[in-house]
Design a protein around this nucleic acid. Structure first.
Lengths: 247, 247
DNA sequence: CGACGCCTTGATCAACTTCAAATTTTGTGG
DNA sequence: CCACAAAATTTGAAGTTGATCAAGGCGTCG
């Protein structure tokens, strides 16, 4: 609990817009002092992006990095003939972009409507140089991404279609409801990805995703509503299937 | 070229054993001063490990981290029913272990015979705290691992068996011969993994790996010898297939 | 209403797995 | 160095999973 430190700070010292921002609590901005936040805030822009819009232009070419304020961003890789694979999903308050190095050829795209909080590259890089804790937080985020990528590799390489679907749902639930849900039955959520994206996430086709979702519905594990709504009826069962369908 | 800096240093200031060590040039030890290297060297142990031996015990439980001096280490994830997937391959001079955080449940195992240079955890953590460049180098290694993991996810999720094999061979060649090989035809190498490991790397079965290797041989792209020896006859063609088999 | 995007369902097909066995390679002891 | 056993690899035949091709349903927006 290092929130003790922050309780000594008058909230009025912090830019209004940062006061309830997740990035200040759990993201990279948590490393910054009130003075630094105020300075950073002067060159910050907040933008909204429709689902399916490309985000690379914003945080790569135009010289900006961003925190995700809300929504889900997908990172995609492409093969020359058009096959594609989603290689990362990012949620608030993740940091988009790679100070001091270069992203290895991934396309960042808004999976849902997305709001970003963007900063000029050079300002961020200056702050990172002067604030080791900021690099440490970024490093930590990247280690989490690495762990997620490796879990996912196990899913892509060794799981069956239904196991993949179950794994995907478990991951989404754990992001949408980080704490409680483990016990929650009958949790209603809205999937942040459409079927085609789920297919690209799991290395399957749209048809297989649809069939396996129906399959989970028929087993009484989920209920499927309109407009990406889904209710998790039996989360334990879902977790079990995610590890091995034969039970 | 930041070797300029080092040229001012009498090599005699540096522990003999470190003088020609890759980890000092390209790995995390490059961040340390001669004094620090000398201090670290006092508590350093160097060990050899037979292929197929587990390495986790060394760098996790016993309180050690290590640099790889030679050989290849595989990181594996397991499903409860025994299916397994290799999620990382590490080469010299990679750093093994995760200071300040915890490895997400992967098994580290020697794929070939391996030599390690190991340090007590607390000493490394002390050095990292006092030497920001060391954390930066570690961060950089982890970003490389993340990029490799994402390339690999594309391979696992969207490529055919022969494309997977070709991608694997390209990756191995690029690690064994980081610079020149791009042009080199007829490059003879020794695969660091046996068929079963290649299968676990690519999410295939041993039989499929064997068949596709035969397939590449019949196309005149590789020649296969005894004892994991393989000669890359047509590297360009191999790279093309790695991206898309239809050419 | 009609068109479009998205999703579902069905029938067929191909790629890869599984099962089985033969063959080669490697390691070990005489 | 050779012989032999164990391990690794290759090859073949049959079976399965998920992909592909094709059609139809549902919801939204002009």
């Amino acid at each position: 609990m290092n929130s003790d430190k922050r309780e000594n700070i008058h909230n009025s010292d912090i830019p209004l817009i940062c006061q309830s921002c997740e990035a200040r609590h759990k993201g990279v901005c948590g490393a910054l002092s009130p003075v630094q936040l105020t300075e950073l805030n002067k060159v910050t822009t907040r933008t909204a992006h429709e689902h399916s819009s490309e985000l690379n232009v914003i945080h790569e070419d135009q010289g900006h990095y961003s925190n995700i304020l809300s929504g889900v961003v997908k990172l995609t890789k492409l093969l020359p003939d058009g096959r594609q694979q989603i290689v990362g999903l990012q949620f608030a308050p993740d940091f988009l972009g790679r100070p001091f190095s270069n992203q290895n050829n991934v396309i960042a795209e808004a999976a849902t409507n997305v709001r970003l909080c963007s900063f000029p590259k050079n300002v961020i890089e200056k702050f990172i140089k002067g604030t080791p804790d900021m690099e440490r937080r970024l490093h930590k985020q990247h280690l989490n991404e690495l762990d997620e990528a490796r879990d996912w590799m196990l899913t892509l390489g060794r799981k069956t279609a239904i196991e993949k679907l179950a794994s995907f749902l478990v991951l989404i639930v754990s992001h949408i409801d980080p704490e409680g849900s483990a016990q929650n039955e009958n949790l209603a959520i809205e999937l942040p990805l459409k079927r085609g994206d789920i297919a690209d996430y799991l290395g399957l086709t749209i048809e297989t995703v649809s069939r396996q979702l129906t399959n989970l519905r028929k087993k009484g594990i989920v209920e499927i509503g309109a407009k990406r709504a889904i209710k998790i009826v039996n989360f334990d069962r879902l977790k079990t299937i995610a590890q091995s369908e034969n039970v």
